[in-house]
């Protein structure tokens, strides 16, 4: 692992929507934002709340959230739930790079936001946003399962807004 800082940049939807006409972008907004396939990267205790959110509803489709994709090869949004350690950080970066564009990241819980209660530890990455660009931060230790749903709704609002501009 080289020690030069990685230029992360802001996540983008891809080149095509930016040059598309307004009606096409409107459709692409809705298409992306309301069919989010979720890759739940559960690392620690927040993973339990993540699973509770994933299994709480019989059908997530009215919300525009697709299946909670276990494979991670086809997901739109990666939810990082739990403590990120320095040893695991390169693996998380590889998982993020493996996901097809556009990829969004939700940081779930204090540990993923900023290191949380383990901010002073010798081996904890202080926030997953040091490795991957994060779109939505959900606070809590652990956050309620409903807070994850609210975070996803907030992400949908952001997707709606970002592509349009």
């Amino acid at each position: 692992m080289d020690s030069a800082p990685t230029e992360l940049g802001l996540p983008s939807v891809g080149p095509r929507p930016e040059v598309a006409a307004e009606p096409a972008r409107y459709v692409l907004d809705r298409g992306i934002g309301y069919s989010l396939w979720v890759f739940d990267l559960g690392l620690a205790c927040c993973a339990v709340e993540l699973v509770a959110a994933a299994t709480a509803h019989e059908d997530f489709r009215p919300l525009g959230v697709g299946p909670f994709e276990p494979d991670g090869g086809r997901a739109d949004v990666m939810v990082v739930a739990g403590t990120v350690t320095d040893k695991l950080a390169p693996a998380i970066r590889r998982l993020y790079d493996r996901l097809p564009e556009p990829t969004h990241v939700i940081s779930f819980g204090s540990c993923a936001n900023s290191g949380g209660p383990y901010w002073d530890s010798y081996c904890v990455t202080k926030g997953v946003d040091q490795i991957v660009p994060v779109d939505v931060y959900v606070p809590g230790c652990p956050p309620r399962p409903e807070a994850l749903v609210q975070g996803i709704l907030k992400l949908q609002e952001k997707i709606e807004g970002s592509v349009r501009s």
Binding site: N113, S114, G127, D129, V134, D135, V136, Y137, V138, P139, G140, P143, R144, E146, A147, Q150, G151, K154, K158
Partner: peptide
């Protein structure tokens, strides 16, 4: 209250 997720971490 638990619905205060943010887009920017400084808002937290």
């Amino acid at each position: 209250e638990f619905e205060y997720a943010e887009l920017d971490i400084r808002e937290l």
